[in-house]
Every structure is written in structure tokens, then in C-alpha cells.
Simulated assay, not measured.
Amino acid sequence: MLDRITASLSSLAPAEQRVGKLVLADPRAFARLPVRELAERSQVSKPTVVRFCRSMGYDGLADFKLKLAGSVSEGVPFIHRSVDLDDKTGDVLVKVVDNAVAAFLQYRNAASTSALDRAAAALAETWRQRGRIEFHGAGNSGIVAQDAQHKFFRLGVTSLATSDGHIQVMSATLLGKGDCLVTISNSGRTRDLMDAADIARRNGATTIAITSSGSPLAGSCQIHLAADHPEGYDRYSPMVSRLLHLLIIDVLATSVALRIGSSLQPVLQQMKDNLRAKRYT
């Protein structure tokens, strides 16, 4: 959560930047102080404090403080342990698992439930209007896009996944009102993905970005689901980021399934029965 605020600071209005700097200076104090004192310390109005919280993707001050308290809680530390060249297999096992678990706990405490709710509502609305959902990604994120398409087509949603930049641009050109584009990117700076998202948004489609805070892609899409982590990917292929993206897709797919309701259960059961015939007894 603190990483997200740091990354987003430069894109905020000057008054909101002062609130953000106050959070970063002493997050524990910010989580317990009343709005009046927070406004005085950051030299802004009380509505500006609330506006900052909403700019970061939270419902308001209460929601922000709750997530902030969980993020800085000593009970859920985030210690990113990089793999070293002389690590034994046992060391690698512990570090990779610890990094993944810590990233999931950090996301649970810091995730914006309002942003997730907006994204799930938009995806469910696309299902209701019989529109199309597309998942775009490149590299590792392209694999996540394929996983997302696999999860959503089982819900009866017309969905497509692509990692080819030319196909993404052409496909985005065919999207329109009632359709939805979900763009998945670790850096949020891949030109092909941003071009396709811009085209889809101009054509009236709802655009959702699963990417890092403060990135160009995060600012260009209508709904941003922050996927922030301290993983460095200069030495090894991204691991924590990919798992975090997959987790967010799981949350969205489950939320959309709940919105579709009981009509989905017979279809899933029939699908399961049909698949059973494909297995050896």
C-alpha cells in the first residue's frame, strides 16, 4: 500500500500530495488520528483528506485507514527475500514460497475493494448485455490473459485472450459499448497494450487495467486494479507478479460468478459431467 502511494504521488494534485507524504512519514499515526488533525498536519481541508483516499482507490477515509492499519501491522510483514547464486534447493523453496505468501497477504490488506467491485460489476454487466470480454497481455502477462479467458468462458461469457500486439489493436478496434477490455501488465508501459486500451476506450468499451500504480496504463484505463509488489525482475523471470495477477483474476471471476447467480450452477454441473466422460476410470 505504501509502495502504491509512493508510485502515485507525482500524479496527484499538490494538496493531495501533502496528504500522501503525511501517510508515508508516519502510516501508523495516520491510521489512528481523526480527520481534523490529519487535515491540520498536512495543511489541507478535511474534504481533501477524503479525496486523497478516493484518489488512491478506496471508498473513503475509514476504508483507507482500515487497509493502512492492516498493511503496516507487525503481524503481516512483507520481507522480499531475493534468491542468491549460492542458495541450495531448500533455500530457494523457502524464499519463493515466502515471497508469494507475503505478497498475497500484503494484497489482501491493501487491495481497493471499491475498485474490485467496480471491475466485477462492469464484467457482469458485459455478460448481461451479451457483450465480449477481451484479455490482453504480453509475455508472462499473456499467459495470465489466457488463464483469465479460460475462467470467464466457463461462466458463459464471450471472451478472448491475445498476446499479439497487432491482433490486440485490430481486436480492440472491433470493441464498443457493452464490451470490456482487461489489460494485464507488470510494468504498465508496454506500447502495444496501451495502444489497444486507448482504442477500446475511445470506441466506448469499458477498460480495466491490472498493473502497477503510477504507470501510464493505470492512468489511461477507466478502472485500475493495483498490482504492486517489490519484486525485481532484472535477474530472473517474474514470479510474484504473475501469481498476484492470477490471484486478482480469481477474485474477479468468483465475484462475477456470484453476480450471475444460481442460473450458472446447472451449466457448470453439466460441463463437469461432460468432462467426466473424457477421463479414464
Rank of each mutant, 00 (worst) to 15 (best):
Y58G: 04
D59H: 05
D59M: 01
G60P: 09
L61C: 11
L61E: 14
L61I: 13
D63P: 05
F64V: 04
K65T: 05
L66M: 07
L66W: 03
L68C: 13
A69K: 13
S71L: 08
S71C: 11
S71A: 15
S73V: 06
G75I: 04
V76W: 08
V76R: 07
P77E: 12
I79C: 09
H80K: 08
H80G: 04
H80T: 04
H80Q: 13
R81Q: 14
R81F: 06
R81E: 15
S82R: 13
D84N: 12
L85W: 08
D86M: 12
D87A: 06
D87V: 12
K88N: 14
K88E: 14
K88S: 13
K88R: 15
T89A: 13
T89D: 14
G90W: 02
D91M: 10
D91P: 07
D91Q: 13
V92W: 00
L93I: 12
L93A: 07
K95Y: 03
K95I: 10
V96C: 02
V96F: 03
V97C: 06
V97H: 09
A102V: 10
A102Y: 08
F104H: 12
F104P: 00
L105M: 10
Q106R: 04
Q106G: 05
Q106N: 11
Y107Q: 11
Y107N: 09
Y107H: 15
R108Q: 12
N109M: 11
A110W: 03
A111V: 12
A111L: 07
T113V: 08
T113S: 10
S114T: 14
S114H: 11
S114D: 10
L116W: 03
A120P: 04
A120S: 14
A120M: 05
A120L: 01
L123N: 02
A124M: 00
E125M: 12
E125I: 01
T126E: 00
W127R: 05
W127Y: 14
Q129I: 04
Q129W: 04
G131V: 01
G131S: 01
G131L: 00
E134T: 00
F135D: 06
G137L: 10
A138C: 15
G139Q: 06
N140T: 15
N140R: 10
S141N: 12
S141K: 07
S141F: 04
S141A: 14
G142I: 04
G142E: 02
G142L: 03
I143G: 02
I143E: 06
V144Q: 08
A145K: 11
Q146H: 15
D147K: 15
A148G: 00
A148I: 00
K151P: 00
K151E: 01
K151M: 02
F152C: 05
F152V: 07
F153P: 00
R154H: 14
L155Y: 03
L155N: 00
L155R: 05
G156N: 11
V157N: 00
V157Q: 03
T158Q: 06
T158F: 09
S159K: 02
S159R: 03
L160V: 10
L160Q: 13
A161T: 11
T162Y: 06
T162G: 03
S163L: 05
D164R: 13
G165W: 08
I167N: 10
I167K: 02
I167A: 09
I167M: 08
Q168T: 06
Q168S: 15
V169S: 13
V169Q: 14
V169G: 01
M170C: 13
S171M: 12
T173L: 15
L175W: 01
L175E: 02
G176M: 04
G176N: 05
K177R: 09
